[in-house]
C-alpha cells in the first residue's frame, strides 16, 4: 500500500486516535479525562469504519447526476462508480449514539462529583475491597 495515499493516511490516523484515546482512558485519573479519551477513541473507530468502505477514485453515494446511472433509461446505478454506503450509514448512527453515551457518562461524572467533591478516580474505590 502506498504510504502517502489518502487511504493509508486515514487508516493510520484512525488507529493512532483509537490507541491514544484508549491509553488516555486507561492511564489518566481525572474522570473527565477518561470520558474524553473514550470520546477520542470513538472518533477513531468511526474514521476507521468509514475508511474501510472507501475505494479510491470513486464518488460519494449520492446519485444526483445521470452519469452515475448504468444507462440513461433505467434507474440502475453503476456500482463501480460510488463508494460503499453501508459503513457510512452505520457510522452515521454510531456518532449519534456516541454523543448519547458520552452525555450519560458525563452525567455520572457530575453526579459523582456532587457527592464526593472529587474528580480523581482513586477516590471512588469502594468496589475495590
Amino acid at each position: 500500500m502506498n504510504l502517502l495515499s489518502l487511504h493509508a493516511l486515514a487508516v493510520g490516523t484512525a488507529i493512532v486516535l483509537i490507541l491514544v484515546g484508549l491509553a488516555g482512558a486507561l492511564v489518566r485519573r481525572n474522570l473527565l479525562k477518561i470520558v474524553l479519551g473514550f470520546s477520542i477513541a470513538d472518533s477513531g473507530v468511526n474514521l476507521l469504519i468509514v475508511t474501510l468502505g472507501h475505494i479510491p477514485g470513486r464518488t460519494a453515494p449520492i446519485i444526483d447526476d445521470p452519469k452515475l446511472l448504468k444507462d440513461a433509461g433505467s434507474l440502475v446505478v453503476d456500482a463501480s462508480k460510488v463508494v460503499d454506503p453501508l459503513p457510512q450509514a452505520l457510522v452515521l448512527t454510531a456518532i449519534v449514539i456516541g454523543v448519547g453515551v458520552t452525555a450519560l457518562m458525563l452525567a455520572f461524572v457530575v453526579r459523582l462529583y456532587a457527592q464526593g467533591k472529587s474528580l480523581d478516580i482513586r477516590d471512588f474505590g469502594r468496589l475495590k475491597w
Binding site: V35, T51, G53, H54, R58, V91
Partner: peptide
C-alpha cells in the same frame, strides 16, 4: 474533514454538528 475527503459527506456533517459542536458543549 477526513470524512469529507473519504467521500462521506453525510458522516462529515454529522461529525461536525454533533462531534465537534454538541459534544464539545456538553463537555
Amino acid at each position: 474533514y477526513l470524512f469529507l475527503r473519504l467521500a462521506a459527506p453525510d458522516v462529515a456533517m454529522t461529525e461536525a454538528a454533533i462531534g465537534a459542536g454538541l459534544s464539545t458543549v456538553i463537555f
